[in-house]
Amino acid sequence: MSSEVSLGIPELPAPDYPADVRARLETDAREVIARYPGSRSALLPLLHLVQSEEGYVTRTGIRFCAEMLELTTAEVTAVATFYTMYRRKPSGDYQVGVCTNTLCAVMGGDAIFEELREHLGVGNDETTADGKITLEHIECNAACDFAPVVMVNWEFFDNQTPESAKQLVDDLMAGREVRPTRGAPLCTYKETARILAGFPDLREGAVEATGGAGPASLAGLRLARGEAQARVVGQRGQTPEHAPPAQPPQDDADLHATPTSPSPAEHPSSHDAPRQTAESDPAHPADPVGEHAEQEEGDR
């Protein structure tokens, strides 16, 4: 590795955005700033905003934030370099983040990351030659009951395997539509950054995509309702007769349509899935919000 030591004059100030871009971003920035009692609170959203323009936080973006908030570029840089979601170099359209915190790593995240690294030929925080994919290892993303988890542009791809993750990146590189297990059909990293800046996703169907809660989120509810059988567990990977595959969320039947979302039958936790036709238990005493709530209060 060679490192150049420059002893010349300090870097010139960053160039400004072209006038039309600047005007558009200023309108957005004023809207963001107006949400807060103190203008500096808008800095994190504004950094997301400049990232939505160029895909990473450039010196121009830093200058823009500083000017909008009457801060120095040093102050803005100090903040931009503290948070991991701000990129400091050009990156891919799709950020593929593999959770390698302990639980996901143990459950297979390490193997998935290795597989993708080999398959894509890039290391951590590196981008494929076609500029499509940046591979990253990420920290716990609050989806441990869906481990191992992969995030693409911060949408959830739950219960991944090395095979499903490879298929996922192949689809992304081939430009095929990819749908997460929880979240909306993928948009680019820049478009994602705009949502993060606080501008709602206006695409039709984006909010309702993939339905209510994911299957693991419903594990306790199904049990409490008597819709799932307790203490009957099949061998992992087999589909025992007594455990029919899960139903996909009801209002999005084509959730499992793409090869990147494992179908219910091949889902690694399919055998745990709630039963399709189970007897409910109307006499259930532990449902304080059900219609029998009042009489139960007396029982307690």
């Binding site: 209510g212 419903l218 509810l221």
Partner: peptide, 20 residues
Amino acid sequence: PAEKLLAPVLSAFWDDPRSW
């Protein structure tokens, strides 16, 4: 039965197709 110990409140209707 252990599952009778559960008491869904916040999660009581998460399985509704438009729970949010």
